[in-house]
Design a protein around this nucleic acid. Sequence first.
DNA 1: TCCGAATGATACGGTAGCGAAACAATCGTT
DNA 2: AACGATTGTTTCGCTACCGTATCATTCGGA
Lengths: 112, 112
Amino acid sequence: MTASQALHLWHNTALKLVHSDGPDLTLRQMSILLHIYLVPPPHTVRGLAAVLGVTKPVITRALDSMGSLGLVRRTRDERDRRNVIIQRTVDGALFLENLGDIVVEEARGLPL
Amino acid sequence: MTASQALHLWHNTALKLVHSDGPDLTLRQMSILLHIYLVPPPHTVRGLAAVLGVTKPVITRALDSMGSLGLVRRTRDERDRRNVIIQRTVDGALFLENLGDIVVEEARGLPL
DNA sequence: TCCGAATGATACGGTAGCGAAACAATCGTT
DNA sequence: AACGATTGTTTCGCTACCGTATCATTCGGA
C-alpha cells in the first residue's frame, strides 16, 4: 500500500462516516471504542487513560458520551470496588462492524 | 483486506494520531483537508459544503481553525469576487504526508 | 482501627463545535 | 441604475470537549 493509496482510503472512509448520520465520535472516542473491542479485557478507566496518553476525565467523559449512545457499558469490579470495568455492547459491536465494512469496501475500490 | 484487519488498521492509526501532539482535527475537518489535497482544484466553500453534505458555516469554521493552524489558505477569486478559493500550504501537505506514512506503516505491521 | 494510596467522578473556567437565521458583498440581468 | 440571486461570513443560543484541581469511595497495611 502506497502513501497515496492510504490517504485516499482515509479520505473516502472519513467522507462516508461524515455522510452517515451515525454518531459523530471524536478521534479520541474512536480510539477508546476500538481499543475496548479489539484488545482483550478487562478495561479500566486508568488503563485506557494510560494507553491513550490522556487524563482520566477524558476517559470518564468519553464513556459518558458513548454510554448514552449505547456503544459501551460500565460495571463495578466486585473484587476491587474502586475499579470500573468497561464492557462491550451489541450496538457498539455493530457500529464497529459497519466501520470495518466501510474501510474494506473503500480499500477494494482504491485507484492503483 | 478483512474487516478485522481494517479495524486494527484504524485502531493503530487513530492511536498514533492521538499520541502525536499534532493538531486535533475533527472528522469533518479531516475530510475537508483530505478533499482539498486529493481532489483537483478549485475548491470553494459552497463546493466543499455540498461534497461533505454539511452547511456552509461548518466549512467557514473549519477553514478558520485549519487556517490558523497553517494547514490551509484562503484567497478571493478575482474573476468572481464572491468566491473564496481554498488553497494548499506546505504545512498542510506535510501533515497529510505524515498521516499517509502512519497508515502505510501500520498496514505493514498488521496481523495476518 | 486508622491512615495513606489508589480509582473514578465531579466542578470549574475556558474554548470550540453545531444548526438556524440574518448579514454583507458581488454578480448578472434587466 | 436597480433588483434578485449567489456566495461566504457572522451572530445567536446551545452543547460538548479540554486540563487542572478537587472530591468520594474503596482498598490494604501499620
